[in-house]
Amino acid sequence: MAQITPGQAYGFFTDTSVCIGCKACEVACKTWNELPANEPVFGDGYDNTGRLDAQNWRHVQFIDNVPDKSLGTGQGKAWLMMSDVCKHCQHASCMDVCPTGAIIRTEFDSVYIQPDVCNGCRNCIAACPYDVISQDEDKGVAQKCTLCYDRLQGGMEPACAKACPTESIQFGPVEELQRAARQRVTDLHEQGVPEARLYGDDSSIYGGLNAFFLLMDEPEAYHLPNKENAVRPGRNNAGGYLGALGTAVLAVLGGLIALRRRREPAAETPSGADTTSPPSPETEAGED
């Protein structure tokens, strides 16, 4: 890995076609970032991490696609394994809604939650389309992958990429990674693996993901929104406010109608004049 220079965009290229599900990335991440380990869970799969959250910043997804009749070996189809992580989106939904400015873009173009600025409102959790962030119970703030901000500042690559034995996780300048990834897809297609595809390498998904992927199936199979569904929370600002504005106009009109209805019959009857000046000492008091 060449020198890491601030001002340049860095990210991950996670190539799921070579992931073996060893979870070295998870362990390295937890070790470096001093995140608590998980209780072992023995369910009906190899995944005892569950999902990304405040304590799990890398999560190897095990997606069981084992067919009923055998297909022959290889091709990475029966088990989809993917080391999931914060995508460090160019158009980051979490950053859009954050009211405190705690979520910033660093000099390495990564998306970083400053733990001393975050006040735990959890708006970013509602916004992130990838289920990446959650709130740390003890610290009371939102946490997620930092792209090993501290390591980058010290000129070291992130712990997960360093630990990955198959180079499924590659770290580097985003442009270089994109070039390598496109070459890799071409190679795979030539080798007869047509299902290989890139996700987030171009601007079609949230303006481009600095941490992008090579997938072996539809994005939805990995719980990733496809192009049509990769939408930003801000899309609902205009409609939401306009709906409220229309309602406000109608509501004020309704209030005026209610006031007029009440006064009309009162004005018709001669004694109706009484209603406009009840013997109310308070009303008088206001005028003096």
Binding site: S93, V97, N123, A126, A127, C128, P129, V231, P233, G234, N236, N237, G239, G240, Y241, L242, G243, A244, G246, T247, A248, A251, V252
Partner: peptide, 30 residues
Amino acid sequence: LFIAGYTGVLLAVSNQPVWSDTWALGGLFL
């Protein structure tokens, strides 16, 4: 009017099911 209604918009400006699938919540809450 804003205070009574914006809370619905706040829910809509997210990527949550239901909340972000409609523009009606602001008006509805108002």
